[in-house]
Simulated assay, not measured.
Amino acid sequence: MNKPKVCHFTSAHKPDDIRIYHKECTSLAEAGYDVSLVSAYEASGLEGAVRVVHTGSGPRGRISRMLFTAKEVYKTAKQIDADIYHFHDPELLRFGLKLKRRGKKVIYDAHEDVPRQIMAKFWIPRVFRKLISVCFEKYENYVAKRLSAVVVSTPHIRERFIQINPRTIDVCNYPLMNELMEPTSWDDKQDEICYVGGISVVRGIRELADALALLPDLRLNLAGNFSTGELEEEIRAKAAWNRVEFYGYVGRKELLSIFQRSKIGMVTLLPTPNHMESLPIKMFEYMSAGIPVICSDFPLWKTIVGENKCGVCVDPSNPELIASEIQRMLSQPEEARKMGENGRIAILEKFNWEIEKKKLFNLYETL
């Protein structure tokens, strides 16, 4: 019996998104499904069993993307006439509901707890955030209840959605086995740390830059896109910028190279409601690469780091404490090296995609 035709679609993510393309779509294709991925962005260098289709619209402003790009992506996805549709952005909720009403199996992949995320959106006036958050949550619940299934990225988000749709599963965004597991000897590294991911105020870039200024012999490998041009200008104007190696958005090979150069991986996100229960992929990728982690002292993260002895937690709003923990870790190389090894072991034993993809396969089989 042939596996069903599957279409993943996204209006906000690039075709090579690690969760969507490299994990979910590729794993389903390897399991025998006929998989297409529709994105607004043009694909390049993606070779494999996943058929990548782009709408040609490319990058747009936030409002234009929500209003027009989402519709273009939906129209392209609908033409594929798949058996199962799997979408990845809140702005596509209305189109997921349309597909369900056309008799399709439809899965909503909730990467974030969006109502809580809205409360930290700098581009939404503070006075309106609570109202928008409440209204969106009601709408998201209304649609999610009527879809075939919901996939979420953390157990915390699952607890919310399972009250609405009993066919809800958490598929955590843990690393691919062996992808980043080519560690470099600690003795071969310089005094360099790294931060990889979205660069924004709520992700602690100001505090990290200020901590760097307190450590004159330290260099920061910074990879990702700034949330705004104004923030990039602000950070570039700081005194320590001359000790920042800024890569911008990087591919997977460049990512491995950054990890091999760095002694510590930084995840000092500020305590927003969305961050405190998240499972940031960057933390687990640092662990996979065998480098110790310095992360925010959220209860969930303290449990993960503490139980696996793979790093330390710190108040992310305090540059002096961040700098102190960096300095302490650099001054105790044997302890830091052991933390890195512990992180790799934890990835091999429990925090990896090989375990998570089985949940996805089971869901697809039930559909």
Rank of each mutant, 00 (worst) to 15 (best):
F122W: 13
R102F: 13
L99A: 10
H111P: 06
K121F: 04
L99S: 12
Q79W: 00
P115F: 07
E112T: 07
A110Y: 00
Y74M: 09
R102I: 14
F87H: 08
D81C: 07
I124W: 12
D89S: 08
L93Y: 06
L92T: 06
V114I: 09
E91C: 07
G103D: 04
Y85I: 01
H111D: 01
P115G: 00
P125D: 04
F87L: 10
A82Y: 04
K98C: 11
P90W: 00
R101K: 15
I80H: 09
W123I: 03
Q117F: 05
P125I: 05
A70T: 08
D109Q: 07
V106C: 00
L93C: 06
L97A: 15
K71A: 09
K105W: 01
D109A: 07
R102V: 06
K104S: 02
R101N: 15
E72V: 10
K98D: 11
R102E: 14
E112H: 01
L93E: 06
I107S: 00
G96N: 04
Y108Q: 08
L97Y: 13
V73N: 00
K121I: 13
I107C: 03
H86P: 06
A82W: 01
A82S: 10
H86Y: 03
A77K: 05
L93G: 06
R101I: 04
A70L: 03
W123Q: 07
G103C: 09
P125T: 05
D83Q: 10
H88Y: 04
R101L: 15
D81A: 12
I84P: 02
D89E: 08
W123Y: 13
A110P: 03
Q117Y: 08
M119R: 10
H86G: 03
H111M: 12
Y74N: 06
I84E: 02
D113W: 08
Y85G: 05
F122G: 01
W123M: 13
A70P: 04
I80Y: 01
P125L: 10
R101A: 15
H88R: 02
K78H: 05
F95R: 00
A120H: 10
E112K: 01
K71H: 12
K121T: 12
T69H: 10
E91S: 14
K75F: 12
A82Q: 11
K98A: 13
R101T: 13
A120E: 12
I84F: 04
P115Y: 07
W123F: 15
G103Q: 05
G96C: 11
D109S: 12
R94S: 14
E91V: 07
V127E: 11
R126N: 13
F122H: 15
I80V: 00
Y74D: 01
D113Q: 13
K78N: 02
A82I: 01
A110I: 00
V114D: 04
L92Y: 09
L92K: 09
D83I: 03
K75H: 11
R126E: 11
T76S: 10
K71Q: 14
K121R: 12
H111A: 03
Q117I: 04
